[in-house]
Design a protein around this nucleic acid. Structure first.
Length: 471
RNA sequence: GGUCCCGUCGUCUAAUGGUUAGGACAGUGCCCUUUCACGGCAUAAAUAGGAGUUCGAUUCUCCUCGGGACUACCA
């Protein structure tokens, strides 16, 4: 039987990195196995589910490149399906109506808790006959409870091995508020069955839901799917990421200038590792090598420095044209007029950027020479007059360079000057003249990007500034 | 409190009965260098603790401790 998996988020908040990692592992497994990857929006909670969150989910998935294979399912559109199964359970006596009020339930729970006992529904409504329940339903509200069997349920988790729970501790759980309002643990079981899901891959926070779902599946005569519970991604406080209120969401990373390649690479390393000592992995490599045998069991603390390092790595290795395209949203409109120039600029600055948003500050001087102090042109103790002379000489040398010369050619010319007159004495003022900054790429890089005309103009500006210093 | 899961450098992790316990990020030092960055080299840093099994445990078993998840008419 071919593999069918689903990513089943609920649209009740921002798309967290933990959720994205779950989506990634589902997608990798599906593609690795030549299977099917489904998207199911779990929006049974009418109060908390929002269309805007659903859009964020879809945008995030698209950004990362996880193509889903069928139209996304929405649980809110499948209410009649759940109703059918609910009625069946009710008819067979495997579920029943419960008329206890939330207040009563809460009191019961508190009483149990204060005695150090596990909070568990006492089963007061268990014995109400169906006919009587139907009569009371006319004027009372009731929820539907599952008659949880008191027995041990064990299953084999693909990452954890055998896991066993004693269902006797749980009590009869609520599976629907009414026939039209199924709850998570019930809807999941029905959907996974109806959608022929073979492998349920989700976060470890669902581990304790699994025995309940298996029991419901059994009551329905359904063979449960295989399970894989992924280690949680933890914040710096070592707590589940989504519990942190100030969490950065997936799309925030995109908007802060992270490349999707870096985010993907970073996420896959949280809980999985290839056979060799490699940490830089392309999507193709992940796809080829992904395997549950190498999925870690313990939670992974999110390490922002490593994400930055990976992002810098991918930026450094991006072709300038691709970089220009990816960075465009982060740059001033005016920079985008000359695409070839922009590509050259970003190509020379790419090893300095950690994020795409860094280019705005890094590369501004290419587009407009900043005003700077004349003193900045002076290298250490070198007399200003000597600097001025060097700059004039450099100007003469520059005139001999072919107009469209590349970085290497420019560099060769410059080095002959530097060798004669001292590299600090020549290169430092030249670089400042070209960039107006203390820190920048080397002068040959800048000239190659700027072109001879603008370079000469900037050197002339520097010469004028130096004049005021001497004068 | 109860149930379940997990415990290798600060962090992500590799090794799985026999290794000087490896790599990466971050840190530190040096080198390269006109600056910044890149890069190179080096360095510090871990098997939670205790029993047991074994000739030999990071690895297997048990206990303790620690951390986490769940414990809703949320998902």
């Amino acid at each position: 039987m071919s593999v069918r998996v689903r990513f089943a988020p609920s649209p009740t908040g921002p798309f967290s990195l933990g959720n994205a990692r779950t989506a990634l592992f589902n997608w990798l497994f599906a593609r690795h196995e030549g299977g099917t990857f489904l998207l199911r929006i779990e929006d049974t909670d009418k109060e908390r589910s929002k269309k805007e969150y659903e859009k964020i989910l879809l945008d995030g998935l698209k950004w990362l490149g996880f193509e889903w294979d069928e139209e996304p399912w929405r649980q809110s559109e499948r209410l009649p399906v759940y109703k059918k199964y609910l009625e069946r359970l009710l008819e067979e006596g495997k579920a029943y109506y419960c008329f206890c009020t939330p207040e009563e339930l809460d009191a019961e729970r508190q009483a149990l808790l204060s005695q150090g006992m596990p909070p568990k529904y006492g089963g007061r409504c268990r014995a109400i006959p169906v006919a009587e329940a139907k009569e009371r339903l006319k004027k009372e509200t009731a929820v539907i409870r599952f008659r949880t069997p008191e027995k041990e349920v064990a299953f084999t988790d693909m990452v954890r091995g055998r896991v066993a729970f004693d269902l006797g501790l749980i009590g009869d759980i609520v599976i629907a508020k009414d026939l039209e309002s199924p709850l998570y643990n019930f809807a999941v079981v029905v959907d996974d069955y109806e959608m022929n899901i073979t492998h349920v891959i989700r976060g470890e926070d669902h581990l304790s839901n699994t025995p309940k779902q298996i029991a419901i599946a059994e009551a329905l005569g359904i063979e449960p799917p295989h399970y894989a519970h992924l280690p949680l991604i933890l914040g710096p406080d070592h707590k589940k990421l989504s519990k942190r209120y100030l969490e950065t969401s997936l799309l925030d990373y995109r908007d802060q200038g992270y490349l999707k390649e870096a985010v993907l690479n970073f996420m896959v390393l949280m809980g999985w590792h290839p056979a060799e000592d490699r940490e830089v992995l392309s999507v193709e490599e992940m796809l080829k090598e992904f395997d549950f045998k190498r999925v870690a069991k313990s939670g992974a603390v999110f390490n922002p420095e490593k994400l930055d390092w990976l992002n810098a790595h991918y930026i450094k290795n991006s072709p300038p044209e691709k970089l220009a395209e990816a960075a465009a949203p982060f740059l001033p409109e005016a920079w985008r007029k000359d695409e070839a120039f922009l590509a050259k600029v970003l190509g020379t600055e790419r090893e300095r950027a950690k994020r795409l948003s860094d280019f705005k500050d890094l590369a501004g001087f290419f587009f407009e020479l900043p005003d700077y102090e004349a003193r900045k042109l002076v290298w250490r103790e070198t007399p200003a007059a000597a600097i001025l002379d060097n700059l004039r000489f450099t100007l003469d040398v520059l005139a001999k360079i072919p107009p469209a010369a590349g970085k290497e050619t420019v560099e060769n010319y410059l080095m002959t000057v530097a060798e004669k007159r001292g590299s600090g004495e020549v290169l430092w003022p030249l670089r400042v003249a070209l960039s107006g900054q203390d820190a920048s790429p080397g002068p040959a890089d800048i000239i190659a990007a700027l072109g001879p005309e603008e370079s000469v103009r900037r050197i002339q500006v520097a010469i004028a500034k130096l004049g005021t210093l001497i004068g």
